[in-house]
Amino acid sequence: MNSPNPFVEIVELKGLSIRFILKNSNTAFANALRRIMISEVPVMAISDFAIINNTSPIFDEILVHRLSLIPLTTDLDGFNLPEKCVCKGIGCSRCQVTLILNVKAGDSPVTVYSRDIVSSDPRVIPINGDFPIAKLSAGDEILIEMYARLGRGKDNARFQPVSACAYKYFPRIVINTSSCVKCTNNGILKCVSECPKGVLDVNVETGYPYLRDPLNCSLCKACVDVCEYNAIELKPDDTSFIFYVESTGSLPLHKIIYTAATILAEKCDEFLSKIGGFR
């Protein structure tokens, strides 16, 4: 229990994707964080529809499915989850946003885009106006009233704030210098040339191989297999994890990770309070 506190080291933050290392942690925590990011961080999505008019060649069900999958920008502090709202899930301005899609085609076909959706709340709008929703032939009309609410990824994929969300172990490599003979193949160390990811390199001073790019090592152990002298040891470090998280755009990445950690803490508190009598 005296292990140092876990901390996060951001390696790369590029647009909607982040790569970070979670250090001084363990598999249980890393996996809990990953699962909560996927299935428990609430996000806004359209979930109820009132189709008033749809004469387009796209069926109502398909239209509704497409509309529901469009990611909406989310303000987590401004809205409540419907089941936790004061209105008890009936739908009020604190847990629900109304959006209207009203498009009418003239004499030629028209493509309906997500930019045509009019929201009653400027905080909740489609992340991007370029999503094609439907195509109308001449004279067709679409008039739909939509209700967006917060939801969780475990209920429906539309409420998932992340697309790719994964972690892997941090690699630790140990070279046994007493048994390594620096065997070469065409002038390159055998283990270095064998690595399919090209993450091993030769230390210029000592001549021994070393792990130049640990983030891209996939722990395939090709270098261990090719070594005839058992001089390389490659092991996953089960206290450090390389995370890769990609947001769908509805929530910023730091908010997703922070909210996931908060939800995990709340769950732990709830658990402790429930077993409180046994402590």
Partner: peptide, 12 residues
């Protein structure tokens, strides 16, 4: 609108 496998928005 989204990738069938990972759920990333690709419709745009």
């Amino acid at each position: 609108i989204r990738c069938f496998t990972c759920g990333a928005p690709i419709g745009d």
